[in-house]
């Protein structure tokens, strides 16, 4: 494969993944509005298109057409960079996520993954940790007390929970012996559901730590203090309007999807079937690829469903509770999990 072919294939994959990702983001918003509506015993959006299915498109058009207000007191360069940084980082990390079995068509590099990196897991962590700046700079450059408080809360929360998040993944890495996401999935592919890290791998403690830390990392309820409407009006994006606000909104949902993808890959066997070899693989490449894609999407979808369910159910934490929980419970628990996993692996 020549370098031109490689670049063309990469551009194609990036374009397709970006479009799919943005569509997924739009429809995750709709999913949230519909589900929260049902939880609160109302219908949610139902007027635009059948079952309100065209609502995300109309919302997008609305944000494009709205007047873009830049308040006079803001520090302009950072105010303009912040939403780009937030959305950019949220979209970049999906680049190392494998969506399905390695298939290649007509001499292409493997489809279903943009880049197969040896340190895929670390890349996701690194990009997420850069994403904090989008929120922090937005809050600071807005020159408003609500934004600043939101940004301060957010940076403190992200730094605290990043530790627990990173430590909870160590157990999985120890079991797989690699940071490559493909290797981690293939290590769980042997016995179907029984060999998934969350069940057979005994990493359920790590899974719950990851899930809670990830909810805090994505600023989602019950850890959504950076944008607590009742205290901070809108948090770090109070002063943003129109498409800039929409970019923060999209970044949040893109991060949710990435978290769902990572949880699927690390704990739920990625694209592998939960039934293992009970259902023998079809001898057709396209059918197998489609099936792997189906399982992956189904698992990620259930994580998104869980996100919305949690938001519809749990009240918000208080700030000191949040910090205590992160430092005094999640982090020691994550360290204990690492020790236990290492002892088990050494004993075996």
């Amino acid at each position: 494969m020549t370098i031109v072919q490689f670049i063309l294939w990469s551009v194609l994959k990036v374009a397709v993944v970006t479009v799919v990702m943005l569509l997924a983001v739009a429809y995750t918003v709709l999913l949230e509005r519909k589900l929260v509506g049902r939880i609160q015993n109302r219908w949610g959006p139902s007027r635009v298109g059948p079952f309100g299915l065209l609502q995300p498109l109309v919302d997008g058009a609305k944000s494009f057409l709205k007047e873009d207000i830049i308040p006079t007191g803001v520090y302009r360069p950072l105010y303009l960079i912040a939403p780009i940084l937030a959305l950019g980082c949220a979209l970049i990390s999906i680049g190392v996520v494998p969506f399905g079995v390695p298939v290649s068509v007509a001499g292409s590099p493997p489809l279903f993954q943009i880049a197969n990196v040896n340190i895929g897991l670390l890349v996701i962590l690194a990009v997420t940790s850069i994403g904090v700046y989008g929120i922090a700079l937005a809050g600071w450059s807005s020159n408003s007390k609500y934004s600043l408080l939101g940004a301060l809360r957010s940076s403190a929360q992200l730094v605290s929970y990043e530790l627990a998040l990173g430590l909870s993944l160590v157990g999985v890495v120890l079991r797989a012996g690699s940071l490559n996401l493909r290797v981690i999935v293939e290590q769980q592919a042997t016995q179907g559901m029984l060999s998934w890290n969350v069940f057979g791998g005994m990493q359920f403690v790590a899974f719950f730590i990851y899930l809670m830390a990830a909810y805090a990392e994505t600023n989602r309820s019950p850890f959504d203090l950076p944008e607590a409407e009742s205290e901070l009006t809108g948090g770090y994006h109070t002063e943003y309007s129109s498409m800039k606000f929409a970019m923060f909104f999209m970044a949040e949902y893109a991060n949710m999807i990435t978290v769902g993808c990572v949880a699927t890959l690390l704990f739920f066997g990625g694209w592998t079937s939960p039934f293992g070899d009970l259902i023998p693989p079809f001898e057709n490449v396209f059918f197998d690829a489609g099936l792997s894609l189906f399982w992956f999407v189904l698992k990620v979808f259930s994580f998104l469903f869980l996100y919305v369910w949690v938001r519809g159910t749990l009240p918000r934490f208080r700030y000191d509770q949040l910090m205590n929980f992160g430092w005094r419970w999640l982090m020691p628990l994550a360290i204990l999990n690492i020790v236990a996993t290492s002892l088990w692996l050494a004993y075996r």
């Binding site: 670390l122 962590l125 690194a126 997420t128 940790s129 850069i130 904090v132 700046y133 922090a136 700079l137 809050g139 600071w140 600043l148 940004a151 301060l152 940076s155 403190a156 992200l158 730094v159 990043e162 990173g166």
Partner: peptide, 18 residues
């Protein structure tokens, strides 16, 4: 990236903002 750009510099900006 994780340690310097993601953690230490976040604290720097945090203190500057605070």
């Amino acid at each position: 990236v994780i340690v310097y750009a993601g953690a230490i510099m976040v604290l720097f900006t945090f203190v500057i903002m605070l």
